[in-house]
């Protein structure tokens, strides 16, 4: 299911390679800097080292305006902003990695951009998806379902009681 990997509203008709990148970028954006450090460590081990890279756009903290819709489905409006961090880099192999992540972790943005670049190498992609993206997606999905599950015992059935004087 789309929502499980951090894609919100839009089911889109995208070419498969774009749909795949959209998914992994969204998964990487949700991973913490610590999780990405671990992932990059695993990649280093699997590839026997990491490629050199040059920052095109050093990690930078900014904001995005968050839009919502009147009534949930109506006219858009500006709800308020949130902090985000972006980064772009180019590996020595020529792949350009990009990241936009919620919050202010520059390390998270840089690591997400690096993994994004590595994933764009078709030769390594299946291996890295299995090594990094799928486990992160599974962990995120589990966290999400655990969070929802904590509210499950508070599910309630209200019933209305017919008052005495109304009874025939």
């Amino acid at each position: 299911m789309d929502g499980a990997v951090g894609l919100g509203s839009s089911e889109m008709d995208l070419p498969p390679e774009q749909a795949a990148r959209r998914r992994w970028m969204s998964v990487l954006a949700r991973a913490s800097a610590a999780e990405l450090e671990t992932a990059v460590g695993a990649v280093r081990g699997a590839l026997g080292g990491l490629p050199l890279y040059r920052l095109i756009r050093r990690p930078e903290v900014g904001m995005t305006m968050v839009r919502a819709r009147a009534g949930g489905t109506g006219q858009p409006f500006n709800l308020g902003e949130m902090t985000i961090t972006r980064c772009a880099l180019r590996t020595e192999g020529g792949q350009v990695g990009t990241a936009y992540v919620a919050g202010r972790s520059m390390r998270q943005a840089e690591l997400a951009a690096l993994i994004d670049a590595l994933l764009q190498d078709p030769a390594r992609q299946p291996q890295l998806l299995a090594l990094v993206v799928d486990p992160l997606a599974q962990a995120q999905d589990l966290r999400r379902r655990r969070r929802i599950a904590r509210s499950a015992p508070t599910r309630v059935d209200f019933f209305t009681v017919v008052r005495g004087e109304d009874r025939t």
């Binding site: 919100g8 509203s9 839009s10 930078e60 903290v61 900014g62 904001m63 995005t64 305006m65 968050v66 839009r67 919502a68 819709r69 858009p76 500006n78 709800l79 902003e81 902090t83 985000i84 972006r86 936009y100």
Partner: peptide, 11 residues
């Protein structure tokens, strides 16, 4: 802070 983007409407 600079503004980098405007989100799609949240669902």
């Amino acid at each position: 802070l600079p503004r980098f983007a405007t989100s799609l409407p949240i669902d």
